[in-house]
């Protein structure tokens, strides 16, 4: 198996899977959102600390395939310091861009898993989602 730069299983992606960035939990998150992929049972819990509309800190815990973990790693790193509203607006396109490889239709949901968690936060203004919550 080759190491094509346009391969979703290239070494860079596998390295994100083995050592994901921002993996873990935040001490004082302002948002805690979970999402799951019913097809494979993959799960992600995303935590954000948003101050004045800016994503200051981000962390995630997930069980999933290499593609979903690497996507979460890249996406979480990318959103730091950006406006939450902006991140929510371009997130769907951006998660796919960050992988830098064509994704087969069957696997697109894996890539979008971190975004679907983020989207839930964006769609809700309820206080429940903005209150810190325990993971799990």
């Amino acid at each position: 198996m080759h190491n094509d730069v346009r391969d979703m299983y290239r070494e860079e992606i596998l390295e994100h899977y083995r050592h994901p960035m921002n993996f873990g939990t935040l001490k004082k998150p302002s948002h805690t959102i979970s999402a799951a992929n019913p097809l494979c049972g993959d799960r992600i819990t995303l935590q954000l600390r948003v101050e004045k509309g800016i994503v200051r800190e981000v962390a995630f815990e997930a069980s999933g395939c290499a593609i979903s973990i690497a996507a979460a790693s890249l996406f979480s790193e990318w959103m730091k310091g950006k406006k939450l509203a902006q991140v929510q607006k371009v997130g769907e396109k951006k998660t796919q861009e960050l992988i830098k490889a064509p994704i087969s239709v069957a696997r697109i949901q894996c890539v979008l898993l971190p975004y679907s968690a983020l989207k839930k936060a964006s769609n809700s203004t309820s206080s429940e989602l903005t209150r810190p919550r325990k993971l799990g």
């Binding site: 299983y9 494979c40 999933g64 395939c65 290499a66 593609i67 894996c110």
Partner: peptide, 9 residues
């Protein structure tokens, strides 16, 4: 190795 990764590869 997740089963979806095995299946794709």
């Amino acid at each position: 190795i997740h089963s979806h990764d095995v299946a794709t590869l």
